[in-house]
């Protein structure tokens, strides 16, 4: 009997989870609330069943996530009985960093990248699971499943460890850590198909609804609260929109859609000719920008 496509991917991910549990001292699951995180967490629950995952969840909160994301996060952690660590870069907050005035690059660097490093250092985590997939972006396509980071959290793309036959070398020096990507070989379509197959709950923002949006720089930005000032000439309109990826709300573009069920989302995705990261502002900072961010320690 050969495994189906999704079964193969699931087994591969579970093996990765267990390898970390068996060989690393203090892992953590980077939970960013989106659909990839939902699948990641679901796989973690499966990998260690009947035990609970032997690690906590960490959410690096930029304070600019959609409110529905935060509600969803807290409820899920409570329902599953898992430890949830929420870390906010308080220095960034004090300095007044925000996505609107500081720009996406500075905001992401301070609140996300630096915030993540602070949290990893504070708790001494030596392995952090992330939901990144190789099909998302070109530099991610070349990253290993076990991505070694220096004590300063830097990634060296030219000096990655080969991973033949899924033999992961998990040795590291004190201070070094791993970013581990169990969903490396999943595509966006796989993630949705698996969400349907396994009946995994996801944030309602993925489903189309009438939401207050403004058109800004060619993107539809949802006005999730009144921290988003309107520019001259902008008006808030209510449109049927949904999100393909979720991040900080002022930096995440919505797509117009009527898809209110998973089946409709999947149908829409298959017909779509635009990649999901198109709505992400941070990827367009320049060619190779994701690669540069990753070298600096971004997930």
């Amino acid at each position: 009997m050969a495994l189906s496509h999704l079964e193969s991917l699931e087994a591969e991910s579970i093996q990765i989870f267990r390898e970390v549990a068996a060989t690393c001292e203090k892992p953590v699951l980077l939970y960013s609330i989106g659909k990839d995180s939902a699948v990641l967490l679901h796989l973690a629950m499966k990998a260690f069943y009947p035990a609970k995952p032997p690690f906590p969840l960490l959410h690096v909160d930029t304070t600019w996530k959609f409110r529905e994301m935060i509600e969803f996060r807290d409820k899920l952690a409570r329902d599953l009985g898992l430890d949830l660590i929420v870390h906010i870069n308080e220095e960034g907050v004090k300095a007044g960093i925000n996505p609107i005035d500081s720009g996406s690059r500075l905001h992401t660097d301070v609140m996300k990248t630096q915030g993540l490093k602070q949290a990893l250092d504070k708790y001494g985590f030596d392995a952090a699971f992330g939901g990144a997939r190789r099909d998302e972006e070109k530099s991610r396509a070349k990253e290993r499943v076990f991505s070694l980071r220096s004590a300063e959290h830097r990634w060296d793309p030219k000096n990655q460890r080969p991973e033949p036959w899924r033999q992961y070398n998990t040795r590291k020096r004190p201070g070094e850590s791993f970013r581990v990507f169990p969903l490396s070989n999943w595509t966006e379509a796989d993630v949705w198909d698996y969400i349907v197959r396994e009946n995994i709950p996801v944030v309602p923002l993925y489903f189309a609804a009438s939401r207050p949006v403004v058109e800004r720089d060619g993107a539809l930005i949802m006005r999730d609260d009144d921290r988003l000032p309107l520019r001259p000439g902008e008006t808030v309109q209510h449109r049927m929109v949904r999100f393909r990826t979720l991040g900080c709300y002022p930096l995440t573009g919505a797509v117009e859609s009527e898809a209110t069920t998973l089946a409709q989302i999947i149908a829409e995705m298959r017909a779509s000719r635009a990649s999901e990261r198109q709505g992400r502002v941070i990827d367009h900072d320049g060619s190779g920008s994701m690669e540069a961010k990753k070298q600096e320690g971004y997930f």
Binding site: H42, L80, N199, I200, P204, L262, A263
Partner: peptide, 13 residues
């Protein structure tokens, strides 16, 4: 794990 989801539907083949 189940919750806020609309009833699952069979995925397209």
């Amino acid at each position: 794990m189940s919750g806020d989801l609309p009833a699952a539907v069979a995925p397209t083949p």
